[in-house]
Nucleic acid binder design. Sequence first.
DNA 1: AAAAAAT
Length: 509
Amino acid sequence: MADATGPSAAPATSAETEKKTSVGIVEPESKPQTAEIKRWGDMVDDEEQPGDTASSSDDKVVEELKVDKLAIDDSKKINKFLDDPEDSSIQAVTSGDTPYTSAATFEDLNLSPELLKGLYVEMKFQKPSKIQAISLPMILTPPYKDLIAQAHNGSGKTTCFVLGMLSRINPNVKRPQALCICPTRELSIQNLEVLQKMGKYTGISSECAVPMDSGNNDRSRSRPPIFAQVVIGTPGTIKRLMSQKKLSIIDMQVLVFDEADHMLAKDGFQDDSLRIMKDIERLNAQCQVLLFSATFDETVKNFVSRIVRKDYNQLFVKKEELSLDSVKQYKVYCPNEVTKITAIKDRILELGESLGQTIIFVNTKRSAGMLHKALVDLGYEVTTIHGALTHEDRDKIVKEFKDGLTQVLISTDVLARGFDQQQVNLVINYDLPVKYETPSEPHYEVYLHRIGRAGRFGRKGAVFNFVMTDRDMMIMEKIDKYFGTKVKEVPSWNSEEDFKAALKEAGLL
DNA sequence: AAAAAAT
């Protein structure tokens, strides 16, 4: 148990010279991938790492995996309407000399028959996505090392950690063995639903640990202890259950942080997350920690690499390759609030359901309420979600949207991350996401997460960024520069043709 | 003071 923690705890076989090859991640040899490029071991973290991590980065091997788009198209693309989200590089850094082989099929992963059945029958998956192919062997191969994994929005990260949790449960132990912490109630519920679907045939028990009925007076202290084998929830509730001894962590094998960059940011849930992690670590030093997100800015990246166990694996994507090609981004100049509302009304809502579903992001609850009232007063059916609503209302609004009963959802950043609704083709940034402390700076991570609500799993999508002020103009320029994109301008907010042309170009009309 | 979580 304790021997799995130290850097020296690598498996007995430690042939220094074999390190490069033994660490390798082998691409599935299925296709004639002549265009595949591999680069080995020469580039350690391109970030400047002071002395403290020198020893750990020495024994890491970096590999850049690139699959040429054409090679994929030629070979196995079945659905030509889906852009392949896999065709960008993921940078893998493995540690120690554990060999990993990329999983070409789910069968390669030694999953239980019940779990495989869940993947094929319930989830209707055929083969692992790129992040799944690379990360799952790292997650599932003993010795169980911590993993920091970045992958594109909608590329299937949830499946990675859900499979990780499900496949490590001892069915005979009827106590919590896997814990997943999420930033919002909605994401916790969504992840639990995925886990229950995927694990349908496994008999594994699971439970959500999120704040309960807000409607009544807080009698929530009478919550019973948790015996479920997998627990997914929000930090405050998890922390409370732990301190009340209603959530046993003695058997914990896997600890997952979804949206890990936010969970471990100091303006996020750093304190709660660290507390939970430390408590579990203290009782259970071998517990595997998995950190997943589409974004890790340099600060967080540096921080998280220090808090996981020394001998960890990591997968990262360059920020210039993080934007989804399948989601076309636009900016629209609107001189004032009224024109923003008119543009939504005349250019978007009037098109009706042909666009699929739409999410309109705003920066504040007040802005959400204002826009909601304006559109409802104009006679349109929109729903709105933000953190000031009751839990019941939030659940209801999300459910209606997921069931397709509502087409247009106004939201604060409560749904910016992780929310997965495949029918969302259009995202509107009614307000541009900015950093709170420095409102002239874009919030790059929030921007990327918001636009990632469209284009799930390679689907086509469009984003309209409403630009009202000079400051907004600058923010869009900074976003372009940061992500290496060139967000096109819709010439006139008042032109039906302009919008239709944009939507057509995005593949939505 | 913000989004969110929770006290």
